[in-house]
């Protein structure tokens, strides 16, 4: 499982910018059955958070209504440059981590 943190080209300090997040995940709803009729266990991303040097910028909880490979976008004014760290946890207990360095130009 992998993820992408997509920053706009040339992000600037003090200017609102859009950060896009794309996480590779099947987001199994738990409502489906396999070919032998057995229920497929629910496995979705329970929670995720995006931090800037340890300070949470954006976090949330996802449910069965979210598509596979969820795409999330939010607007933020970053206070300073630093490492953006995305973490997530799914129902099977798997965690994921993706980091990207954000350099703001003044």
């Amino acid at each position: 499982m992998t993820a992408r943190i997509i920053l706009p080209p040339n992000p600037k300090a003090g200017v609102k910018m859009d950060i896009r997040i794309l996480i590779q995940h099947p987001m199994e709803t738990g409502f489906r059955y396999d070919i032998s009729g057995a229920a497929i266990a629910k496995n979705v991303i329970k929670s995720f958070s995006l931090d800037l040097d340890g300070e949470t910028l954006f976090s949330g909880e996802l449910g069965t209504g979210t598509s596979a490979n969820p795409f999330l976008q939010f607007s933020v004014i970053l206070p300073h440059s630093g490492w953006l760290k995305l973490q997530w946890l799914d129902d099977e207990g798997n965690t994921g981590l993706e980091r990207v360095l954000c350099n703001l130009s003044s």
């Binding site: 992998t2 993820a3 992408r4 997509i6 896009r20 794309l22 590779q24 490979n69 795409f71």
Partner: peptide, 12 residues
């Protein structure tokens, strides 16, 4: 390309 989910596979 930033919306296209196929780039998750391309990254891999």
């Amino acid at each position: 390309d930033t919306l296209n989910p196929a780039f998750l596979w391309i990254d891999q």
